[in-house]
Design a protein around this nucleic acid. Sequence first.
RNA 1: UGGGUUAUGGUGUAAUGGUAGCACAACAGAUUUUGAUUCUGUUUGUCUAGGUUCGAAUCCUAGUAACCCAACCA
Length: 553
Amino acid sequence: MSEEKSLNFLEEIIEADLASGKYKTIATRFPPEPNGYLHMGHASSICLNFGLTQKYPGFTNLRFDDTNPVTEETEYVESIKEDIKWLGFTWKEELYASDYFEQLYEFALKLIQKNLAYVDDSTSEEIAKLKGTPTEPGTDSPYRNRSVEENLQLFEKMKTGEFPDGAKTLRAKIDMKHMNMLMRDPILYRIKHAHHHRTGDKWCIYPMYDFAHGQSDSIENITHSICTLEFVPHRELYDWLIEKLEIFPSHQYEFARRNLTYTVMSKRKLLQLVTDAHVSGWDDPRMPTISGMRRRGFTPESIRNFCEAIGIAKRENMVDIGLLEFYLREHLNSTAQRAMAVLEPLKMVITNYEEGKTEEFLSENGPDESAGTRKLPFSRELWIEQEDFMEVPAKKWFRLAPGAMVRLKSAYIVKCDSFEKDTGGNIKQINCSYFPDSKSGSDNSGLQVKGTIHWVSAAQSLLAEVRLYDRLFKVEDPSSEEGDFKDYINPDSLKIVQAYLEPSLKNVSPQERFQFLRKGYFCVDKDSTPGKLIFNRTTTLKDAWAKEAKKKA
RNA sequence: UGGGUUAUGGUGUAAUGGUAGCACAACAGAUUUUGAUUCUGUUUGUCUAGGUUCGAAUCCUAGUAACCCAACCA
């Protein structure tokens, strides 16, 4: 119970800040840009930011970083809020960087008045040229020494829309020879005559990330502003602006983003998969988006446990997706209702079972007795899985084969007497005899069998579409491979089959999760209806036989 | 020829000068009316080279490697 869990570097910083009295409570924020759907990488950040204020006194705000009207949309705002809620977190306030546009404008004025910002007429190309390179210093813009008065007037005109897009920018006056490229007079404001999803047409100048994020943090009294490693060089500018503006000193801390094997995680790449129709949409169950994973059947608990387990640090990483699957199975094993479904059917006829007779058996709904039982109809003709029969049994095979016996889960032991093939040589039916005294729960037969297989009574079975998903990519790290990452898409990432289900599944509703015995975990798709059942395979079960068979091959 | 960040088993993460630990994976075995679950056991690691110290993953010196920085994106 009281296992000592060591602290990650952020928890150490926070505990030190709390202990020293620097803060009595802490404040974090999750700052998505509403220009795409949230993915597993965001989940990591969400768990971190909200998790910290669950562990320590304080709160977490949800703040949309909406400073670029060209790419941002309300649709994304809604999906982001839904995903965070689904993951199980609650924000204190829902805020927008655009809420602060007026205040940010005042901040800019203050900087100009302190002669720490100026209006630059240079074109984008000229600015880039004068910026220098990481190894060569930049040179001052010819507009750098305008008077405070002139800057004030020009900035005002930028605001009132007197200039076209790109004609002028407001830049901080720092040092064009600075080692840190971001300190070479960074652009603070640019002109964009564009409609904003919240402020409409009120503004035609918009602050850049660096002039919005830290200031928003400060306005909200965020104590620990956590972001990913690529923002490390921004921290110097972040601190510079807070110092010159003389506002609440929020602090930025950086951690390494988590990478997952067999997938891609950048918005740009995910967008390509959607627009090029490699997947059906942002919520395609193969996507590493929160909405995709939800549709696939992942549970919030499993994602949270995974994020907790991988922790945070500052080093590069590539986390095995198998670990995520482990936490998925761990949670689903204890919560998913059991059911039987035959995915690739093969007919079994029990020749010594009376024609037209039906029996009902009880089968447990889960490993825990409290899950209860359900009824399964049994009759002369059943569907079993094709892969549970081998004409010529392999070594260590303990399923069906000519002359071999298995138990039908929760029912009788049967023995295979013969089988039939179609003209193409495919096995189309197997004929068995059952042992009446081997009935599940009252077995007096004395027979010992090694294998137990699942089955569905043919007459009472339900037909359903089952979508068998596999990993989206064939290689561990598609982004680091030669050529385009899309060349490494797994062509077998989706296989659709028509399956037979036990009748208890008749009235399932979307998002319900089941374990189909011996086949894996499945989730009812959002498009499923009682008239057309659709299940998504969330993940397979661990399969020791598959491993054994592979070893021999 | 710049600046920044980071190096611990196959993967992720601990150890804050004192027995290199945990989880996943892998391997072996037990149990099992799911070849699942559960249980037991095993293998594998401190980037390199020097130095300080009774003692170094940890401190010092010099290397090496990876990633980030030259968007009016965030």
